[in-house]
Design a protein around this nucleic acid. Structure first.
Length: 301
DNA sequence: AACCTTCTCAACCGCTACCCG
DNA sequence: ACGGGTAGCGGTTGAGAAGGT
């Protein structure tokens, strides 16, 4: 059938944005809020396609963006999240207030990849580059993506947490910052969320469904492993939390060939430990896994 | 100073998921 | 249930900056 172009290419500017264009976009969004990107350029008097406006706003003009260098903590968090989520830049960005998916993607490709390689870690698989462990496939063969069901569980849990930059991807469920405009009949990225909460029970069910889970426990200022385990033990075996506990991430826990073998065999490593909340040492899960520390713990500090 | 190479990152492109009539 | 329209995502590109010769 063929897709209609997102904009009338003949009458749109391309390339770098001028200050005037930026100002027009900022002014317009200040007045009317985000949303209805398709019609925004016309309304704002911009000779740009809506997509371009959206990108410009999200990646550059949003007032809550944190410009400047990434901190060491951000670096490590990105690495950990990437090892967990793969190239889900928008989800990763959701955990880094003030950072955009594009920014993180660029930063990953230009800095972190190199950093990991210099550490001897394959940036795609998060395995040691020269690991030749029996039973563990070569680094380049398998991306660190999780099974779809697990990804969606994680996405849902991530999405349920508000984050500072107010940027929510399609799957994100948390309400955004209140839009500035009063009314908008378009489906908006900023205004839908409230509606979304009403209209999208499917997503909510996915996230809740009797299995409320909160990855913040693991990623941010994580509670002790014990606490997480206690919480996990209080829910039924088939809840999302317990599923997360079961997610096999041998990729994350391969510091040595021996540990790699142990991890691959056990294939069940405590998430909180993988995500770096091990300040107090190994948790019970990891201990039962033959001492397969997440190697980030050793590298990160 | 001029040229070349490498690096960075903003912007674009194409695809997919989702919404709505 | 279906199809069109739109927003959002991830991969890629290319212009400009920075560094090297």
């Amino acid at each position: 059938m063929g897709r209609s172009p997102c904009c009338e290419k003949a009458h749109t500017n391309k390339g770098a944005w001028t200050k005037e264009e930026d100002q027009r976009l900022i002014d317009y969004i200040r007045l009317h809020g985000e949303g209805c990107w398709r019609s925004l350029p016309k309304s704002a008097g911009l000779l740009r396609c809506g997509k371009s406006c959206r990108l410009r706003w999200i990646n550059y003009l949003r007032p809550d963006l944190k410009r400047g260098n990434f901190t060491e903590e951000e670096d490590e968090l990105i690495i950990k999240l990437h090892s967990l989520l793969g190239n889900k830049w928008s989800l990763i960005a959701g955990r880094l207030p003030g950072r955009t998916d594009n920014e993180i993607k660029n930063y990953w490709n230009t800095h972190i990849k190199r950093k990991l390689v210099s550490r001897g870690i394959d940036p795609q698989t998060h395995r040691p580059l020269n690991s030749a462990v029996p039973g563990v496939p070569p680094a380049a063969t398998s991306p660190p993506s999780l099974p779809v069901t697990e990804i969606s569980l994680i996405s849902s849990s991530l999405d349920r947490r508000p984050h500072g930059n107010g940027y929510y991807g399609r799957e994100k469920l948390e309400p955004k910052a209140e839009p500035l405009r009063e009314d908008n009949h378009c489906t908006t990225s900023s205004g839908t969320t409230t509606d979304e909460e009403l209209k999208a029970p499917r997503n909510r069910q996915q996230a809740q469904g009797g299995s409320e889970l909160n990855l913040e426990l693991s990623i941010g200022l994580a509670p002790s492993c014990r606490e997480l385990n206690r919480n996990a033990s209080s829910v039924t075996a088939n809840t999302a939390e317990s599923k997360l506990q079961e997610v096999p991430y041998p990729l994350l826990t391969v510091p040595t060939p021996a540990a790699a073998a142990a991890a691959a065999a056990a294939a069940a490593v405590c998430l909180c430990c993988q995500l770096g909340s091990r300040s107090g040492g190994m948790c019970g899960n990891c201990q039962s896994n033959g001492g397969s520390f997440g190697y980030y713990a050793q590298l990160g500090s």
